[in-house]
Design a protein around this nucleic acid. Sequence first.
DNA 1: CTCGTCACATTGAACGTTCCATGGAACATG
DNA 2: CATGTTCCATGGAACGTTCAATGTGACGAG
Lengths: 327, 327
Amino acid sequence: MDVAAAAGVSRQTVSNVLNGRDEYYSAATHEKVTSAMRALGYQPNRAAQTLRSRRTMQIGYHIFGEQLDRAQGFTLHFLLALVKAGSDVDHQVLVFTHHRDDPLGVFKDLVARHAVDAVILSESSVDDERARFLADSTIPFASFGRLSPDLPQHWVDVDNVAGMREVVDVLVAEGHQRFAYLGTDGDQYWKAERQDGFLQRLSHHGLRLPKASLFRGSDQDVRRRAHRLLTGKNPPSAIVTGSDAVAAVVLSVAQSLGLRVGSDVAITGFDGGAVGLVTEPILTSARIPVERISRELVARCLRQVEHGHDDEPGLLLPTELVRGGSA
Amino acid sequence: MDVAAAAGVSRQTVSNVLNGRDEYYSAATHEKVTSAMRALGYQPNRAAQTLRSRRTMQIGYHIFGEQLDRAQGFTLHFLLALVKAGSDVDHQVLVFTHHRDDPLGVFKDLVARHAVDAVILSESSVDDERARFLADSTIPFASFGRLSPDLPQHWVDVDNVAGMREVVDVLVAEGHQRFAYLGTDGDQYWKAERQDGFLQRLSHHGLRLPKASLFRGSDQDVRRRAHRLLTGKNPPSAIVTGSDAVAAVVLSVAQSLGLRVGSDVAITGFDGGAVGLVTEPILTSARIPVERISRELVARCLRQVEHGHDDEPGLLLPTELVRGGSA
DNA sequence: CTCGTCACATTGAACGTTCCATGGAACATG
DNA sequence: CATGTTCCATGGAACGTTCAATGTGACGAG
């Protein structure tokens, strides 16, 4: 360490300054050391720090390699937030996928080799295989998505029901009476929750939903259904959807029919990824607070790393209503 | 190293086996060591390896934090390929973004601190600020996207013109005569290339394009234009687009009008990300070979790391025509 | 028998940091 | 004046691997 020499102090003092152990050095020494660091453009060597302190300052983020769906836009949106949240606490994000033959091995490897301090999961199912494995291995982790009660509650999620409640309330306040709900198929719990949240709130307002006005399916099926609904007699005045991607599809259908979205018909999304921001009008949507979620996930990981455990319960965060021009 | 003890050999011998320096050990020793490693579940410590060998076995991937466009789907598609390409050569991918105040500092930091061996860029402009900086800093890097001739030619890209040629040829072979081209606005060179490639090939076939049938704009403007074209008199029988995302928009418009895509009208995309695979019918598209590109990018980085330089010229790869049902 | 060579294996040092125990000066306490 | 206490600073050791140099036994050649 030539910084030590340049500042005329010992290695250890430099280390102390670097790690902010301020009870161990005077203000004068601090100044000497920092200015020497600046002058030499000194950057501590990560590998050496990691080797000695057993902290990599890196967090792993697992992505599935098979995803072929529309959710990709949102996944990148989330990843970006994660990278920023990590960098705020001086951590970096290592992205990894599993191997076909040994889906879980990578996780153990990564930590055994001291490549990451903790792992973050997303697109988790309630009874997540990865989470179960990590919990058994005592590898620190946190999940974007609820976990079964018999698993450690290292998760953060959005309150889909509350989000839908807010969406419906806004639409009802604007005078809408005839609703429809469209979403993508699949048995993920959050898809069901969004639909259920919608239905619950609708009946709370004493409104009823025609059978044909509730549908989940592929993009194309949704498109067809939207077309049928909007061209049928007594069309819905508000179409609530389960995600921004679906809303974008519906929006396109409505506009193709010459409807002015926002006045002729209201359309709402859910998630607030990039998709809804490039439409015209911008989508009204229940935005998933990815920044906050990322921060909380990282915090959960770091607490486990530092204390060996984390007793914080799972965290359900509210969505933020984005009022675009589509409703 | 207790593996050494278990196998009854020295540290160095274990290290030699690990690094495959087979001229330094016998087959019998190899067997003893590997079985001891298996028995103990030994994983070499990355930090220690990095510290000593000065190789992190990690590659940085820079993403812009501001991207709000449709390209997100493709970006994740590419990232995934990159992660896999890296893992094939035992490297991991570290994702990072820049800070607002010092956009370039991160790059130097990352390497100075020995967090990554090299950096991969994407969404590069020809005269890329980041590439210029990295070239000056002698930090190994490679770019997905062409670089100016006065920069080191560490890039891989797709041949947009050739890709469009193939698309047009297929459509012409199927008997299409009335074409239209739709794309997104923006001054990226590849957007211009795809359009130009289309026009060139069209005139090669002696076909002409009505003025209104060539348009680039926002998603909504594209939607409107597609609608106008398809409902006008003498509508195009084939709509070529500059990306799968645009094609998806056009497809939706066509289907809303009750047209059967593939028979009534042909629609083609460009890039082959996930978007085109979830449509119905699947998009016919010039697929960008992300796997190959990733592999080449990683290879370019590793050559620079190992030899200190890489004289391989830039590489222009052909697209792969995916024949979906949309044309 | 001596020497050189080859194939394999070992040992000491080093990578750059932090942990741990200790040192010394200044200052208060009994 | 001896003793403790506080504040700041130091030096030796260690983290787990690879580098560089050296050792050893077998075998063949002179």
